[in-house]
Design a protein around this nucleic acid. Structure first.
Lengths: 155, 155
DNA sequence: TGGCAATAGTTGAATATTCAACAATTGGCT
DNA sequence: AGCCAATTGTTGAATATTCAACTATTGCCA
C-alpha cells in the first residue's frame, strides 16, 4: 500500500486528530443549532441547493450530487420532505425516467427563516474563530484535498 | 443571535464550502478504504482507543467520550463487536454501575492488521496533500475551533 | 432498426443510530 | 443514617441510512 511509512509523526497525528475531533463536534453543534427550526443539517442542505437552482427545481440526481447524498437516501428523504410540504416531485418531460424535485413556497419560507440563524451559527463556531489568512489557507488546503480525492476516484 | 451579518462573504463561503465538501468526501473515502478489513471508521476508532488504554480496557463512558459516540450508540455497537469477538464486557468492581469494555486478542489482531492501511489511507487522502506549514496551521486552527466549542458548551 | 449497456429513480428489507424511559448504583448533604 | 439528585449503562421502539434488486427509460452502435 504505497511507499508511505506505517505511522504518523506526532505533528501529523496532531493535525489529523484535532481536525477530526473539531469537525465532529462542530457538526454536532451546527445540527443542534438547526433543530430549533425543525431541520437537520442535511435537510437544510437539500433546501439550500433547491433554493439556489433555477425555478427552485433540480433533478433528483443533480440534487444528490450537490448534496453528497446517495440517491436512495435522497429518495427517502424527499418523501419525508414532501410530507412536510417543503418539496414536490414532478415528472420530467424530456427524460421520462427523470424526476424534478421542486421546492414549494412553504419550503422557501422555512429556509428563509432558518438561514440567518444557521449562518450565525457557522460564524460563531467556525468563521469567527479563524483569521482572514486562515480562511484563504483552509480554502486552498481543502480544495487540494478534494481535487485529489476526485482524481483518485477516477483512476 | 449575535452581532453577526446575515450572510457569509464570498471568501468565507468559499472556505466553508470547500472545507465541508472535502471533509464529507474524505470521510467516505477513509471509510471505504477500511471496509477491506471489515471495519467501519467508528469501529476502528473504538478499537484504537481501547488498544491505547491501560490493559486495553476502558469504562463505557470514557470510551464514549473519547470516540464522541453517544452512550446508547456505544452500547449497541459494543454488543455487535462482542459478537465479532473483538471486545468483551466486564463488570466493574469499584463502581457497581459500571462496565469495562475490554479488547480481546482477536480485536487486537484486527486493529494491528488494519492500522497500516488506514494510516496509508490518511496520508494519501490528507497528510500528503498538505505542507508541513499547513499541518501546523490545521492543528492550530482546529484546536481553536474545538476549544471554542467546548467553552461554548459549558456556558 | 434492434439490441443492449448505462442511467434515473424507487422500493423494501437489513442495519445503524437516536430517543426516551428505565434500573441500579453512587455521592453529597442534612 | 437517610434522602434525593446525579451518574452509569442498557433497552426497545422510532427514525434514518444503506444495500441490493428492480422498473422504466435512454443512448449508443452494429
Amino acid at each position: 500500500m504505497s511507499k508511505s511509512a506505517k505511522w504518523l509523526t506526532p505533528a501529523e497525528e496532531s493535525a489529523w486528530r484535532k481536525y477530526i475531533v473539531a469537525s465532529r463536534r462542530m457538526y454536532e453543534a451546527l445540527d443542534e443549532d438547526l433543530t430549533a427550526h425543525g431541520l437537520s443539517l442535511s435537510d437544510y442542505e437539500i433546501l439550500v441547493h433547491l433554493s439556489d437552482a433555477k425555478d427552485r427545481s433540480l433533478r433528483m440526481s443533480e440534487l444528490a450530487d450537490k448534496t453528497i447524498i446517495s440517491r436512495s437516501r435522497l429518495s427517502h428523504r424527499i418523501k419525508y420532505m414532501e410530507g412536510k410540504g417543503w418539496v414536490e416531485r414532478q415528472k420530467c418531460a424530456s427524460d421520462k425516467r427523470g424526476t424534478w424535485a421542486v421546492m414549494t413556497t412553504k419550503g422557501w419560507n422555512t429556509i428563509v427563516k432558518a438561514a440567518p440563524d444557521h449562518v450565525a451559527s457557522i460564524r460563531k463556531r467556525f468563521i469567527d474563530q479563524i483569521s482572514k489568512a486562515d480562511q484563504a489557507n483552509i480554502a486552498a488546503i481543502f480544495e487540494k484535498v478534494e481535487s485529489n480525492l476526485r482524481k483518485d476516484f477516477k483512476e
